[in-house]
Computed example of a mutant assay.
Amino acid sequence: MGSKKVALMVNLGSPDSTAKKDVRKYLDEFLMDERVIDLAYWKRVLLIRGIILNFRPGKSAKAYRKIWWDEGSPLIVISERLQEKVANRTEFPVYLAMRYGNPSIEDVLLKIKEENPFVEEILLIPLYPHYAMSSYETVEVKVRESLKLMSHQVGLKVMPPFYNSKEYIKLLADKIANHNPDQYDQVLFSYHGIPERHVRKTDPSGGHCLKVDNCCEVPHPCQKFCYRHQTLKMTELINGELQLAEDKVASSFQSRLGNDPWLQPFTDKRLEALPDEGVKKLLIVCPAFVSDCLETLEEIEMEGQEEFLENGGEAFKMVPCLNDDDEWAELLAKWINEFEPEISLSETNTF
């Protein structure tokens, strides 16, 4: 009979293997998403399939091989472990899908339908703490589009971003505190980067984000959708728990692509400059990610550390993501069991 209510957690995804062909397939799906590279379709095709996919898959495959586990992609393995722990703590079934790659959203929705033929409601949990069109938004849109292709009526609720959840902030702060942050010259919060135009696009008012001085500090309804505001607020909230001196805490943004303006300061540039500014011992945190992945394990823990030490740094430590920590699984299960949506996402979808 199955359940009338299920939860669906969705993470970013990963190639099926480190083979160049699998990495190319993954990058094609990822970069061709109009919410990742928001150009007209023909421009995306020219840029991605005409240029980027001619050189990027080989470079990315090499990077994936540096962090790949015997069990497979770290992000996938960690997400599966987390799903199992959460499912053991919830009152109804919990499924896992990836926005790109496998297990795909379409395949998992079919599995939900097969195992729960009388399901009435799906609770969608995008595994992103912040709202951004290239992460949280694209997950919700993809799930809604996939549901429309199926033939059953089901309600869809979506858990809002949790960057300012007191319980989540406390978990992160406690994890950072375990690494003795006061023994470092600085704690750097490195968030995934996005183009500035994405910030402007997600501003419903069209007149606040990146248009008003100190826009992220001036309260405005658009901050419900503003990635930059939410990242800076998260740093502030975490340090509210850690109680470090303000000059010992900073935020930056990583993983930019192309020549358009992206959120700054850039993490790689800060890692180069910090030793000359007197920061010899650095603790770095990546709060935009709930699971360690290429962007944390290779870009920060390997490449970032090398960059920092080569420029005069003496000690570098990356705090792991929450991954499948028991406390994180318990918090997710609590949210699922008690969830009441904060945004109007109760429309009925075809399934």
Rank of each mutant, 00 (worst) to 15 (best):
S14C: 15
D16I: 10
S17Y: 05
K20Q: 05
D22A: 14
V23K: 07
K25G: 01
D28Q: 01
E29V: 07
E29A: 08
L31V: 06
V36S: 09
G50L: 08
I52P: 13
F55I: 15
K59F: 00
S60H: 01
W69Q: 11
W69A: 01
I78T: 15
S79D: 04
S79L: 10
E84W: 06
V86Q: 02
A87D: 10
A87Q: 12
Y95L: 03
A97P: 02
M98Q: 07
Y100I: 14
Y100C: 12
G101R: 09
G101D: 12
N102T: 12
P103H: 02
E106H: 06
D107T: 13
D107I: 14
V108C: 06
I112V: 12
E114C: 02
P117F: 06
E120F: 10
I122S: 04
I122P: 10
L123S: 00
L124F: 15
P126M: 05
Y128P: 06
P129A: 00
Y131A: 03
A132Y: 09
E137L: 02
E137P: 00
T138G: 13
V141I: 12
S146V: 15
L149W: 04
H152K: 00
G155C: 03
M159E: 01
P161G: 00
Y163M: 13
E167H: 03
E167S: 03
E167P: 00
L171F: 04
K175V: 14
K175F: 09
I176W: 01
A177H: 04
N178I: 09
H179T: 15
H179D: 15
N180M: 04
P181D: 02
D182K: 15
Q183R: 06
S190G: 13
H192T: 11
I194V: 15
P195S: 12
T202C: 15
D203E: 08
S205W: 06
G206Q: 00
V212A: 07
E217K: 12
P221Y: 10
C222P: 14
F225N: 09
Y227N: 01
I238M: 01
I238N: 05
A245F: 03
A245D: 12
D247W: 04
V249H: 07
A250N: 04
A250W: 04
A250F: 05
Q254S: 10
L257P: 07
G258M: 13
P261G: 11
F266W: 13
D268R: 05
R270E: 08
E272L: 08
L274H: 05
L274F: 14
E277C: 05
G278F: 10
K280A: 09
L283M: 05
A288M: 03
A288D: 11
F289M: 00
V290M: 05
L294P: 13
E298I: 07
E303M: 05
Q305F: 08
E310F: 04
E310I: 08
A315V: 05
V319K: 02
N323Q: 11
D326N: 11
D326S: 11
E327N: 06
A329W: 12
E330M: 02
A333S: 12
F339N: 11
E340T: 06
P341L: 07
L345G: 06
S346H: 01
